[in-house]
């Protein structure tokens, strides 16, 4: 862990456990998870399905309750942080309301949080520009491509200026070309806004390209097997993915995933 005094822990998990009671008996979704995410970090969670990466993200968002250990978000319990609207959450599906146009979809959280009309308009224009959707505010979701819909859903999560962005495989349903483009955009956005991002993915190149830190997880029980600090610079053009450093990290992630898989490949 970094020893710099200026870094500030945003999310801290200590000995976190989560057991789901299912019809087939208890399932250990998370076991003894320890992790600190600092302000401005871009942390990716990668691992096979069932490794608990989405569950961990949902615990941060207070959408799941841990059964053991401790977790704080901005120094509070996740539920307090949720009530203070400390984070924006982006799901794999855009979840835009078909009966609202893009502008009114993006201002949905602002309406709920009671922002004034003028403030809504101002923030709408800011985030539309951030995700490069200016000019599309009057369109309905079905008039937009899948990639544009997902950008709109990111804009919606950014609209209320939470410091933390929790993203659960946001580009998982998109094709590779669109995904590359959105990854590039997301990095620019992260650089401009200085948000703390927790990002769940199952794509190794995506994780390596985006992150300052990569958390490798493995299933049964869901646990962290490796945390890789990325030596890549903050400025990352797409072709950095052909550099030896990139390939080396990707290799280490792949090794970590293989080791975590153990005997049940």
């Amino acid at each position: 862990m970094t020893t710099e005094t200026t870094t500030q822990a945003v999310i801290e998990a200590r000995n976190l456990d989560l057991v789901f009671q299912t019809n087939d008996g208890p399932v250990q979704a998370l076991r003894d998870v320890n992790l600190t995410i600092n302000k401005g970090d871009f942390v990716s969670f990668i691992g096979p399905s069932g490794c608990g990466k989405t569950t961990f993200l949902r615990v941060m968002a207070a959408l799941e309750q841990p059964t053991g250990g401790e977790i704080t978000v901005n120094g509070m319990s996740p539920d307090e942080a949720r009530r203070q609207r400390a984070y924006g959450y982006v799901f794999q599906a855009s979840g835009l309301y078909p009966w609202r146009n893009i502008a009114r979809n993006i201002t949905l959280p602002l309406e709920i949080m009671g922002y004034s009309k003028a403030e809504q308009k101002k923030r709408l224009n800011e985030v539309l520009e951030l995700v490069e959707l200016s000019g599309f505010e009057g369109k309905y979701p079905w008039q937009l491509s899948g990639g544009m819909q997902q950008r709109a859903s990111i804009a919606r999560a950014l609209a209320f200026e939470a410091d933390i962005l929790l993203m659960d495989e946001p580009f998982g349903a998109l094709d590779e070309i669109v995904r590359d483009h959105l990854n590039e955009q997301l990095l620019k956005l992260w650089a401009r806004t200085n948000k703390t991002i927790a990002f769940v993915t199952h794509s190794i190149p995506e994780a390596v390209y985006l992150s300052t830190r990569i958390v490798v997880m493995s299933p049964r029980p869901g646990r962290i097997t490796d945390v890789i600090e990325s030596p890549l610079p903050k400025e990352r053009p797409l072709d950095i993915r052909d550099s030896p450093e990139f390939i080396e990290i990707a290799h280490r992630v792949r090794e970590g995933l293989r080791a975590g898989h153990g005997d049940d490949v």
Partner: peptide, 12 residues
């Protein structure tokens, strides 16, 4: 469930 979770994150 996703739509309802989303509203929950807004504390609606």
């Amino acid at each position: 469930a996703m739509q309802l979770d989303l509203l929950r994150t807004y504390n609606a």
